[in-house]
Amino acid sequence: MTCQNYQDLMMGYLDDELSSEQRRTFEEHLESCEGCRSEFEQFKKLKRITDSVQLAEPEDEMWQKYWGGVYNRFERGIGWILMSVAGIALLIYGGFKAVEAIVKDPTVGLMLKIGILAFIGGVAILFVSILRERLYFWKRDRYKDVQK
């Protein structure tokens, strides 16, 4: 085993995560290796520093109000979702009605009607195309479950 292999044991030793056998193995190595001994001392010093700094506890009042804050948030979250979904549905419906009215209106010129229908057709094709591309890549993304 090289010193590099002892690095995991060194962290485990510092954090008290080793079995007694692993501890003994590491201690034996420390006795014979000056490099690891000095590195271990440096890590011990760092640990002493980090251990002596703590996050201060806030007032109890904050914990008492905590759930209320979360509750308000998800109520608002659900509100936003409902409003957005309903807004989009209403927009689509209104748009559809408006286009229908224009298409059926005999006073509107043919070119304008064709223009509007072509525009809607173009938007629909773009939407389907982007959606298909997203789905295609998502299915083939080997790293989609990897935590970044």
């Binding site: 010093k45 002493r48 251990d51 002596s52 700094v53 703590q54 996050l55 201060a56």
Partner: peptide
């Protein structure tokens, strides 16, 4: 902010200024 607390009684006797 008061978010961090130091433990003065935990300082090492050796080289306390440095730590």
């Amino acid at each position: 902010d008061g978010a961090v607390a130091f433990e003065s009684d935990c300082e090492s006797p050796e080289d306390p200024i440095e730590e």
